[in-house]
Design a protein around this nucleic acid. Structure first.
Lengths: 187, 187
DNA sequence: TGGAATGAGGAATCCGGATTCCGGTTAAAG
DNA sequence: CTTTAACCGGAATCCGGATTCCTCATTCCA
């Protein structure tokens, strides 16, 4: 009945392996997207499959962990743009940054394409990301950088499209970003 | 050695089954995308799996057949827009039509998202579709409906983004189309 | 240092879904 | 109305990849 757990400290090698897995997964997902197999990740991490599974009981959980991590990075990267003096540059700068990020991370582009917009349930980090976009959009709108009728959803759609373009289209995504920004401007 | 084949006419029921399969696949792909299982298609078509496989030896071939069909529809639908008096309305009208189509056909949005842009090898119908977009873009540009620096690739990216937005985002894709069109306009 | 307790590995297993196979049918030809 | 090539149906099989499980190795604590 009692719970006299004599809690031992987490083994150091266990922690090290966890880090290796996260690192390997991050790299592989970035380069090949989430289609990468669990065995690949384990191999790249220099770890057995069993170990990988003890850290992340499910492929889904591993993917989520990485997605969470990268999303947080994006939210963090938004800070300077939120603080930008010129709200127009704030939104534009952030969109360009998102492009740069997704261009270097296939897995992330998959995540963003699916998450920006779906009214699905999701982690708080996703919420934070949406909040950031909303904030940036609001400022840009107040500052007259984008049309008064531009909504957060409009921007979300642009981001979703950007992710798709980066992952599938042959053209220069930077061009796409500029076109989208032009489209959002007043008048 | 000789080939005195007394060619029999294709059985009528065989042909009928083929049509049923195509019809069922079209409907299912449109509603659920290409993730639908072969068995589902067979069931919906009121046909055995074996029969389905005699018509289309591979899932891939079935998907390709439908994609081809729908792409051809899109090309055909472009005709009136190509003939539009106002080139600005030509491009805009076509993009809106594409949106309408993709909004009602999940499978098609998947195809378009992947094919618009990839310099991959593909069917001639895909070529035709790209040619149509190029033509429409050229006219719009010549007519001053879009910026002089707008390329076919730019428009392809917009279409690719549109497909993604329709399939994933929560917002109103019509809004997205207008934003994109605004972004393409001169100035 | 001794002996749990926790972690590592990776072969074996499970699973969902595509594809194959073959005995039973049925339409076309004479 | 036969004959027979084509065709049908769907159970059985195959396959790739995720997930489980059990044995052995390490690390932590007294």
């Amino acid at each position: 009945m009692s719970t006299p757990q004599p809690p031992r400290k987490t083994r150091t090698d266990a922690e090290r392996n966890r880090d290796r897995v996260l690192e390997a997964a991050r790299a592989l997902f970035a380069e090949f997207g989430h289609e990468v197999q669990m065995a690949e990740v384990a191999r790249a991490a220099g770890v057995g499959i069993g170990t990988l599974y003890r850290k992340f009981p499910t492929r889904e959980e591993l993917v989520a962990a990485i997605a969470e991590q990268r999303s947080a990075d994006l939210v963090a990267a938004a800070r300077p743009h939120l603080a930008a003096a010129d709200p127009a540059q704030g939104l534009a700068g952030f969109l360009r940054h998102v492009g740069e990020t997704l261009a270097g991370d296939r897995g992330m582009s998959e995540v963003i394409e699916k998450s920006m917009g779906s009214t699905e349930p999701q982690g708080e980090t996703r919420e934070a990301l949406l909040a950031v976009v909303a904030e940036l959009t609001g400022r840009a709108r107040d500052g007259g950088a984008v049309g008064r009728d531009v909504t957060t959803e409009d921007v979300n759609m642009v981001v979703c499209g950007l992710a798709a373009v980066i992952r599938n289209a042959a053209g220069d995504w930077r061009r796409y970003v500029e076109v989208a920004l032009d489209g959002l401007r007043p008048r």
